[in-house]
C-alpha cells in the first residue's frame, strides 16, 4: 500500500511539475500569429508545390493575409474555387484568373525526328543538355529523359514509350509550373486552358532557320509565316524563326492549323472536322493530340 502511494505521489508529482514547466514556457515564449493564417492554410490544397511562387502553402497563406488585395496571388492548384474561399475568409475582393494548363511545345517523336547519336550516361535531361545538343539534330527539342516527370507532384506527366515524349494529363495538371522550371529546354508553357479545354498552340521551339529545322524534324516550325497571314486576330507573331500564338488573343478559329505546312500547330480537344471526320487519323489527332504527322 505504502509502495503504491509513494509511486503515485512521485510519478504524479513529477507529472504536475513538468506540466507546469511546459505550460509556463509555452505562455512565456508564445509568438503571436494572425489566426487567419491558419484558417487560410486550412483551405489551401497543402501540396507545397511552389506553384504560387512561395516556398510552401503556409508562406502563401501568410502572404494572402498580409497583402492588401489578392491581386497577383493565385494558388494554381486550387484555382478560383480555393481563391474564392480565401477571399471570403479575409473579406477581400475575388480576383478571377483563367485556369491554366501545362503544354509541351515539342512534337519531336521518334518518328518525326531521326536520331543522330546515342546518349549514354545519367538519365537526366539536365545532365544531357549540359553535355551536348541532344541525340537528334534539333538542339531545341525534348530530350525525353523525364526531368519533368520526376518533378511533377501530381502524377500529371508520363513519358509515352512510343513517341519518347512526355504527355500532360489535363485532368491531373494543376499548372503549378514545376515542369516549366525543370525543363532545361524550356519546352513547357502554362497556357490558358480554354473553353472546353480547347487550345491551339505551336508545338515547336526550334529557332533554327527553316531548312535546318525541317531537316532535323519533320514537324518543326519553319517560320514560313503562313499562320501569321491567315490569323485575323493578330494572335500570331514570328520571332527568331519561330511562330508563337498569344493565347489571350487567339479565338480558336483553327485557320492557322490548316495553313501550317509542317503540322507544327496543334489543336486540342476540338470536335473532328466535317471534312476530315471520316479519316480516323485526324480524329485521333484531335482527341489525343499525339499524331500530328498525318493530315
Amino acid at each position: 500500500m505504502n509502495v503504491i502511494l509513494i509511486a503515485v505521489i512521485v510519478l504524479g508529482g513529477t507529472g504536475i511539475i513538468l506540466a507546469s514547466v511546459i505550460f509556463l514556457t509555452a505562455k512565456k515564449f508564445r509568438v503571436y500569429e494572425d489566426p487567419r493564417i491558419d484558417e487560410v492554410q486550412n483551405v489551401l490544397p497543402g501540396a507545397n508545390c511552389g506553384g504560387c511562387a512561395y516556398p510552401g502553402c503556409r508562406n502563401f497563406a501568410e502572404a494572402c493575409v498580409k497583402s492588401e488585395s489578392l491581386d497577383g496571388l493565385l494558388c494554381p492548384v486550387g484555382g478560383n474555387d480555393v481563391m474564392k474561399s480565401v477571399a471570403s475568409l479575409l473579406g477581400r475582393e475575388v480576383v478571377e484568373a483563367d485556369p491554366l494548363v501545362a503544354v509541351l511545345r515539342c512534337n519531336g517523336t521518334c518518328a518525326n525526328r531521326p536520331k543522330t547519336s546515342r546518349y549514354e550516361g545519367v538519365s537526366s535531361c539536365m545532365a544531357a543538355s549540359l553535355l551536348y545538343g541532344g541525340d537528334t539534330a534539333c538542339t531545341y527539342g525534348c530530350l525525353g529523359m523525364g526531368d519533368c516527370v520526376t518533378v511533377c507532384q501530381f502524377d500529371a506527366l508520363y513519358i509515352d514509350k512510343e513517341t519518347g515524349l512526355p504527355v500532360v494529363d489535363e485532368a491531373k495538371c494543376t499548372s503549378c509550373g514545376a515542369c516549366v522550371r525543370a525543363c532545361p529546354r524550356h519546352l513547357f508553357e502554362l497556357r490558358k486552358k480554354g473553353p472546353k479545354s480547347r487550345r491551339i498552340f505551336v508545338s515547336c521551339m526550334n529557332k533554327d532557320k527553316g531548312a535546318l529545322a525541317r531537316k532535323a524534324c519533320s514537324v518543326a516550325c519553319i517560320a514560313c509565316g503562313k499562320c501569321e497571314q491567315v490569323c485575323t486576330f493578330d494572335a500570331i507573331s514570328i520571332k527568331d524563326n519561330l511562330a508563337y500564338i498569344d493565347y489571350n488573343a487567339c479565338r480558336l478559329c483553327r485557320k492557322c492549323v490548316e495553313a501550317c505546312p509542317t503540322n507544327s500547330i496543334w489543336e486540342l480537344n476540338f470536335p473532328p472536322r466535317k471534312k476530315a471526320a471520316e479519316q480516323e487519323v485526324s480524329a485521333t489527332k484531335a482527341e489525343t493530340g499525339k499524331d500530328a504527322t498525318t493530315v
Binding site: K115, T116, S117, R118, Y119, E120, G121, A127, L130, L131, Y132, D135
Partner: peptide
Amino acid sequence: MENKLYVSMS
C-alpha cells in the same frame, strides 16, 4: 549515318 556514335560525358 547509320552507324550512330555514342555520346557521353567525360
